[in-house]
Design a binder for these strands. Structure first.
Length: 268
DNA sequence: AGTACGTCCTGATCGC
DNA sequence: TGCGATCAGGACGTAC
């Protein structure tokens, strides 16, 4: 699933592929419900003839500032993929949204489960929800994480999924981080010691940094497509698989309806 | 306010 | 081998 490292990888791919500088000549969608704002007709009208200036990322959102000062905002949802391809190349059948570009290429938004979303806003702040600090930015300190968790009795795993706590975290990296930190996913957040929170903060940074480095290495190899997904999880995402650290049996539970894997021997 | 759960979606995977 | 059932989950709305 696209989480922070996957979205960042997509962003770097789009920059590498030359999206900035291109002008949008048209837009077509086979699933208008995904276009959240403004209404489709106005969305298309306001995109036409606009030049894309850059590709940024905030949390799991991809932000494309246009020459008008407005921002095109994309969220990949659960299965979204973006590809910059020649118009002559056959599109994947699950491509639901297409931006036609001035050089004949197309920015294609593939989205099998239709959880992806698109916005066009004069100010991105109108669209983005309250987001916490970027985990790989300067603001993500142990103190900041402690403040976000203070007084919260919900399972720490559930809180890691909240974008106001750690913007860009998702289910898989939450499990990975808790495993690296040796913290049980069901621990009430408020019960964590400052030391444990510091460990968790470092584990989050490590998990995301490591994934980013792997994507950076593999992007060149898989060009012109970005790599799909990491295969190197430290925590096996499989019931009863052996823990690589203690050899114990990995357990699977559900937290907030999200599949959650952890090692009962290593995570307390 | 904090917590939890249902909803949207359908390709992929599982089980018989 | 085929086919129906189940799984997967980010963000948001709703309920308590």
């Amino acid at each position: 699933m696209p989480e922070l490292p996957e979205v960042e990888n997509t962003r770097r791919y789009l920059v590498q592929a030359g999206l900035p500088g291109r002008t949008i000549t048209g837009f077509r969608t086979g699933w208008p419900k995904s276009v959240r704002k403004p209404a489709l007709e106005e969305f298309v009208l306001r995109l036409g003839g606009r030049r894309m200036e850059a590709v940024h990322r905030r949390a799991k959102y991809i932000l494309v500032p246009l020459d008008t000062g407005a921002t095109l905002i994309l969220h990949l949802g659960m299965a979204g993929r973006l590809r910059l391809q020649p118009g002559s190349q056959p599109a994947h059948p699950l491509v639901h949204h297409v931006f036609f570009l001035d050089d004949g290429s197309e920015l294609r938004f593939q989205d099998g489960r239709k959880f992806g979303k698109l916005w066009l806003a004069q100010d991105a702040m109108e669209v983005l929800p309250a987001l916490g600090p970027e985990p790989l930015g300067e603001g993500f300190t142990a103190e900041a994480l402690a403040r976000a968790l203070a007084g919260r009795i919900a399972p720490v795993k559930a809180l890691l999924l909240e974008q106001s706590v750690a913007a860009g975290m998702g289910n898989l990296y939450a499990d990975e981080s808790l495993y690296l930190a040796g913290i049980h996913p069901l621990r009430p957040a408020a019960g964590l010691s400052l030391q444990e929170i510091a460990r968790l903060r470092d584990a989050i940074v490590e998990a995301l940094t490591s994934a980013g480095a792997q994507y950076d290495r593999s992007r060149a190899e898989s060009w012109p497509d970005p790599p799909l997904a990491l295969e190197t999880w430290t925590i096996p995402r499989q019931l009863a698989a052996p823990c690589l650290r203690c050899g114990g049996s990995i357990e699977g539970i559900r937290v907030r309806a999200r599949s959650t894997y952890f090692c009962p021997g290593c995570q307390e």
